[in-house]
Design a protein around this nucleic acid. Structure first.
Lengths: 234, 234
DNA sequence: TCTCAATTGATAGTATTACTATCTTTATTG
DNA sequence: CAATAAAGATAGTAATACTATCAATTGAGA
């Protein structure tokens, strides 16, 4: 069975819906690759236009500016990830197993490796953008204004869903929201540190160890999460 | 007794040592206030020059560009904070107490409220920069190059010191470095979320609670840290 | 098939940013 | 008092982040 999950985006995130046209989809697909390649600060609408074979002005018809494009991309990722969490934890009886699934999804393990068609979002590239750039979406001086426009709702929804699973596992836990948001951030920060500043972690390339690096990160996150949820008192 | 702690900075961080001249010190002091006021992206050397009463060109004699200035400021903070940790945990017999001091320092509690002279670094403003902007220091595409120039050494040193205290407390703990770096990041992220995206936390302004917000954050961090260090197995 | 409207392309233009260069003035120091 | 270094003044440049305008294309309905 073939199916596609369409992520329905908040209309504030764009001027014209990029999923509604060929050009729009190309802008999104190529911007993901371009940002993953050269970084967000180095990405310009001109470079993106050149790569796509369109013009700056045309891109501006879809996105107000490149910051909004970044918010769009990470919002898409959060919505996609929330759907994966929902789908993969659905009907699981064991709440610990649900949390395990969440941990693996946060590291982009076990996700449906669907079509590698040119028209598909490159999830791995998007994941690397999320790691390196996503916090720039809200670490701005206009975060309050952006928040009023609901631009961060997908991120909040994901946190809320994970917090819900946390509460299923441990109904008395008083920090479910903070635990969820710090889990997500820690997963991404440690992944970044492992790659670029490994001395900030203990998860580096100990190639004589029997497990891969992301298994070690998974182990660390599992330890952090369950030690806090299973603590005697909070 | 009056004393001043001089933070000795890596020479790669500047072109001319800003602590060596009046203009240099004004650049540093005012840039802290300006960035805290309007945000890092909105700060330009022109605006800074206007505020100081100097010229763009003069500022460029001290700092290669504004990214280097940011790295300088946060590096200064990490060095200052490491000194505070060193000083406040020195000669403490109880290693749990040492960690408590670290937690409080990470939230900028109990630091020496020295001179409020015009010539002093505004630590509270710098702390707000650290919360909002510090990750931009390394979330770049040239992080590897910057790292080679040792620009992040102060951050690593702080992490290593905290990791050392963690190992004093729990010698078998296998994730001391990752625990330290994630502790620092979590402290700052949760502080940011509390201020701007409070629904991502459980630490919001429940004004009917007997403790202030940062006491709640402290409680969360304490819980996270000690539940992981006191876990049965790792 | 024609027409209207929407989309895209092509081109140009502007204010600002992130610098670099040069030359003069001022301050310091031996 | 001379020499030198720091700072000021001024100018200039390439790139960025847009905005504006108009023409060409397309496609959907009458």
């Amino acid at each position: 069975m073939e199916y596609t999950v369409r992520v329905r985006m908040n209309e504030k995130l764009f001027l014209r819906d990029p999923e509604s046209s060929d050009l729009g989809r190309r802008i999104v697909r190529h911007s993901i690759r371009l940002i993953a390649d050269i970084g967000f600060e180095e990405m310009t609408f001109r470079k993106l236009a050149d790569r796509i074979g369109t013009t700056e002005a045309s891109i501006y018809r879809y996105f107000e500016n490149k910051h909004r494009l970044l918010i769009y991309l990470v919002a898409w990722y959060w919505q996609w990830l929330e759907y994966q969490v929902l789908f993969q934890t659905n009907n699981l009886a064991d709440t610990r197993e649900k949390l395990e699934r969440v941990l693996r999804l946060l590291l982009l393990k076990d996700f449906p490796e669907s079509e590698t068609s040119m028209d598909a979002i490159d999830i791995r590239a998007l994941y690397s953008i999320v790691i390196q750039e996503s916090s720039k979406a809200y670490l701005t001086h206009h975060v309050t204004q952006d928040n009023k426009e609901q631009l961060f709702k997908p991120y909040k929804d994901l946190c809320r869903r994970i917090a819900g699973i946390i509460r299923e596992y441990q109904p008395n836990y008083p920090y479910a929201q903070s635990r969820a948001s710090s889990l997500i951030e820690t997963a991404h920060y440690q992944a970044f540190f492992m790659k670029y500043l490994p001395s900030l972690t203990d998860l580096g390339t100990d190639s004589n160890l029997p497990v891969g690096n992301d298994e070690r990160l998974l182990g660390f996150l599992r330890h952090l999460l369950f030690s806090s949820l299973d603590a005697e008192n909070f």
